[in-house]
Design a protein around this nucleic acid. Structure first.
Lengths: 166, 166
DNA sequence: TTAAAATAGTCGGTCGTCCTACTAAATGCG
DNA sequence: CGCATTTAGTAGGACGACCGACTATTTTAA
């Protein structure tokens, strides 16, 4: 006594499809749910690849950002700004990275409101190793051709742009 | 003494760009970070639109799914399967919806392992009102033409498909 | 038919995100 | 100059997602 046999079609086939024949013009909703699903898949892959190194993608991004800085350290506010996350998310990430011994907090003499984050030697090692791991994975995104990836990127960029994201 | 003036270009312009000139062929990483950023934007919009109704998009999806069911109720496992989330996420969502009086848990006589979730009258009201609210928002995704939305959807679908998501 | 395996749901814990509120410090302006 | 405003960071809490572990039930198979 399942529901499906009773209907000419299953109205709730799967996520990203549930709006189809129900809520009026839901093209944008279908796209929205698809975006969320893809994010879920991609993040799971990235986190999975980083798991052996004890970090998540969110924390990996922080490490990358710090390592790219000219002085070798960045104020937390800059990190939040560049990763476009809330200041408290940065505090959280740095807390964890510091507890892991991958990052060190330093006072900023020039502006005593600021705290700088700097990679430790261990942080640099983990960053290097995890970067290699990330490049080695067979990434779902690579199921798209380079051209399709570029096109998707361009479309998302347009979307972000029209949302005032730049 | 900022870092930027010292360099011919800023290597860490923004999220989605931080890989550009650093980590080898990072086309897929750029796309990955862009996907995650767009998800963040889209979800924030949806949650924002639903906030007046006291629910999140995650919980809204659960309401929709239940309302679409032929019997008016669904086992939690079906909900998780269709939304493609972990069983514990469903338990969590139903806990909250039940605490809000929008959903009711029922035992399933046919299979005593199962718990069915059913909308309350209040749940139906909230669903109706919040659906209207969602349709009324000026959605960032609509910054893309219908054609571009369809194209983006098709590309993401290909990606999901190659990730074995269907 | 009975023991093993699969399925359904929950609990406790981790993690990342956001929000509000608060302190300390720097900046701006009358 | 001194007070108001802005900026930087943190604390505490909400929320959603995941995982591992565990119980209860159903299904499978020996």
């Amino acid at each position: 006594m399942t529901t499906d046999p009773k209907l000419p079609f299953d109205p709730i086939e799967r996520a990203g499809e549930i709006w189809s024949d129900r809520i009026g013009e839901s093209r944008s909703m279908k796209l929205a749910t698809s975006i969320m699903r893809v994010q879920q898949l991609v993040l799971a892959e990235l986190d999975g690849a980083l798991k052996p190194y004890g970090i998540t993608f969110a924390r990996y991004e922080v490490l990358v950002l710090i390592s790219f800085s000219a002085e070798g350290s960045l104020p937390l506010s800059k990190i939040g700004e560049r990763l476009m996350v809330h200041p408290t998310s940065v505090t959280n990430a740095i807390d964890r990275l510091e507890a892991q011994g991958l990052v060190k907090r330093l006072p900023d003499a020039a502006d005593r409101r600021r705290t700088l984050a700097e990679l430790t030697a261990k942080g640099k090692d983990v960053l290097e190793a995890s970067t290699k791991a990330l490049m080695a994975i067979d990434f779902a995104i690579e199921g798209l051709s380079d051209k399709d990836q570029d096109q998707t990127y361009a479309l998302l960029r347009t979307l972000r742009s029209s949302a005032g994201d730049f």
